Simulated scan of single mutants.
Amino acid sequence: PSVGSMVRARWTALFRDTPQLHTAYSFESIVDELCFIIGPPLAATLSAGWFPEAGPVVALVFLLTGVWWLTALTATEPKPHPHEEHTDRSSALRSPGLQVLVATFVATGAIFGSVDVATLAFAAEHGDKSLGGVFLAIWAFGSCLAGIVFGLMHFKGKAEPRWILGISAMAVSMIPL
């Protein structure tokens, strides 16, 4: 399942229409970034110290345990919404908004993928593959700090300043150190 969507649905059900929803989303972002701060050095250290597959195996065990635990928490699941009938049968992919989202996520995935590959190649080229995880953790730490700062901000009024600030924070957090 999409763990991020499951967690955000729970936050939304718990804090709908309250200021705490922004804080809950920010907290989730911080926890996600902590995983990216701790995960790469741990995986690189395990793979370099034990055997090459050790890092991915430990990550898989953590992933399966976390997903199992979250899906077992049925008491926190939000109530399902009734299904609405739509008379318009055109493809959702024709929606301009969805097209922008798809393009944005493709570009974001390319950035994340290329940064990971380039960082690990840089570390290998300089003689220590396990440092790649440390470099990625430093990058994630910057994103975590941006999430903390953004989470501590409270906005009143229109959403445009929040949107512009959020895009700016994402842009700054994407700059490799």
Rank of each mutant, 00 (worst) to 15 (best):
S173Y: 03
A124T: 14
W68G: 05
P19D: 08
A48H: 14
G97M: 06
F150P: 02
A123N: 04
P1R: 06
A159M: 11
A103M: 11
A171M: 08
M170V: 04
S90M: 03
W69S: 05
E160M: 13
R162W: 00
H154G: 05
P52E: 10
S130L: 06
A44C: 13
K158E: 15
W11M: 12
A121H: 11
V3G: 04
R94G: 06
G113A: 09
F51T: 12
G132W: 04
P80T: 07
T45I: 12
Q99V: 07
P41R: 13
K158H: 11
A123E: 03
F51G: 04
S5P: 00
H154I: 09
H154T: 15
P40F: 07
Y25T: 03
I148R: 00
L73F: 03
A72Q: 06
Q99W: 01
L73P: 09
H154Q: 14
A72G: 13
A48R: 08
A140E: 02
L93Y: 03
F135L: 14
A107S: 08
T12Q: 08
D88G: 04
M6P: 00
I30A: 09
S2D: 14
A159V: 15
I38Q: 06
L60Y: 02
A44P: 11
W69M: 09
L101T: 11
T18F: 08
G97Q: 02
F141D: 00
F105V: 13
F51A: 09
L131E: 07
G133Q: 08
S26N: 04
H126F: 14
L165N: 05
I167H: 06
S130M: 10
L136E: 02
L14W: 04
T76S: 10
W50G: 01
G142T: 04
L73G: 11
R162N: 00
P82S: 12
P1M: 13
P96R: 12
S47F: 10
Q99E: 01
C144F: 11
I111W: 09
S91T: 08
E28L: 12
W50F: 11
F150I: 09
A59M: 14
G109P: 08
D128Y: 03
T71D: 05
F51Y: 15
T74A: 05
G166P: 02
L70G: 01
M174A: 14
H126N: 14
H83K: 14
V134K: 07
G127V: 09
T18K: 12
P56D: 11
A48K: 06
E53D: 14
W11Q: 06
A13H: 07
V172T: 09
F112R: 10
G142Y: 07
S130C: 08
E85S: 09
T12G: 01
K156M: 00
I37S: 05
